[in-house]
Amino acid sequence: MEVVIDCYFDQIFSEMERSSLLSRYKRRALVNYFTAIIQGCAKGEELENTDVCERAVLAALRYHNLTLVENGSICLLGKFHNVLYVAMKLCFDWELRNNEIVSRLLNDIFYCEKTFERIFVGAIFGTRVTHFLSGWKSDFEDREENIRALIYFMDHANSGRLLYSSPASTGKCRFVDVPMESYGQAIPIRVVIQLGSPDILLLLLRYGASSFADGLSPSPLEMVLNKFSELEVEPGQYPPQLVACLRVLLRTVPLVRVNTPSHIADRSGVETVPLYDQYPKFVESNLVPPERSGVSPPELKHLCRCRVRQSLFDNWALPHGIKELRIPQSLREYLDLLAD
């Protein structure tokens, strides 16, 4: 079986045009080709489909790495790189569980692109607008499948404890916080907030996305507050999606503090103040509870949630490690940010 796949890359694939995998339908055709090989070889050699899939993915990785080495460790892009997205689709379609292989695939994608935005954009924006935003059509059918694929790769990134260095971030960051190059090097959580998508925001936060991963100002939470400030509507008429984004973010911080203007910080030495000092109307209108604004102390239950989640995050156990805790289901949902 390895001979069949290697011959394909050595003879047929090498003769294809460099841009042959730029179109989504051509990548899908190649996925279908390998799917037929996987099914046929698994049946003929009495193997598990996933075992044959592993060999197909490894062959794609070998081909990519071989062309990379031959070009002085510089990716040739085109079909030589896009074959990784064929391998990515195979991993997802066959639910490949080999973390070593999937981690290697993610590392190879990052080595060449310095971003994972092609995995994120379909889940964030859906499949119709991604081509106009970044020139890339998602390899997955619809937004729902894109979300499932994002979850699949976030799980593998956490299992492999993958960390990445990025020019747009300080130090190393996790898969979920890798900046999106075509979107101003913004971390995914910022893109989601700008779009106003509370369901994806909740998903990223559940997997440990940080509101302070890039250390930039304004923070994602301040971005939401600024959006509310710009609205000229009555408190009860705020956009529901924006309100939902704020509620989700408030579940992740013990107390909301906002940055003071730089000229004030330089003179006074006070870099942050409680939310109530800068946005009192949000507290008075019950948009932000007093326990998060600095008016009242945070609840002990919420402080415990923040501390337990930090411990789980440090041990790469978000969100699935919550299920292992011997606590009532209601508390599990609370820890998993599914309840206020």
Rank of each mutant, 00 (worst) to 15 (best):
D108R: 15
L21R: 12
L318V: 02
F92K: 12
G40E: 11
A339L: 02
Y183G: 02
N71I: 06
F34S: 10
Q241F: 06
V258C: 02
N65F: 00
P328A: 07
E299T: 11
I147Q: 09
R305W: 02
A209D: 01
L203W: 04
W94A: 07
L221E: 08
N226D: 11
I38A: 10
I151L: 01
C75S: 15
V233D: 15
S23G: 06
R174K: 11
H263C: 03
A213Y: 02
R62F: 00
S19C: 04
F132Y: 12
N107D: 11
F80E: 13
F9Y: 13
L133F: 11
D142G: 09
G122K: 10
S262M: 04
P297F: 05
P319D: 15
S268C: 06
G72H: 08
Q310K: 06
V102A: 04
G135L: 03
N98D: 13
S14K: 15
R24V: 05
P328R: 07
S182I: 02
V102E: 10
L68H: 06
D266G: 00
P261K: 11
R128M: 00
D199A: 10
K301I: 00
L58E: 14
T170M: 02
A168L: 11
L76K: 15
L205H: 06
F212D: 07
N49K: 14
S229M: 09
L61F: 03
L58K: 15
N146P: 09
T170Y: 04
Y25R: 15
D277Q: 11
E113S: 12
L77Y: 07
S169N: 11
S165K: 12
Y33V: 01
E291W: 07
D177W: 04
A29F: 03
K323P: 00
A60Q: 15
G294P: 00
L287T: 08
V233R: 15
L30P: 01
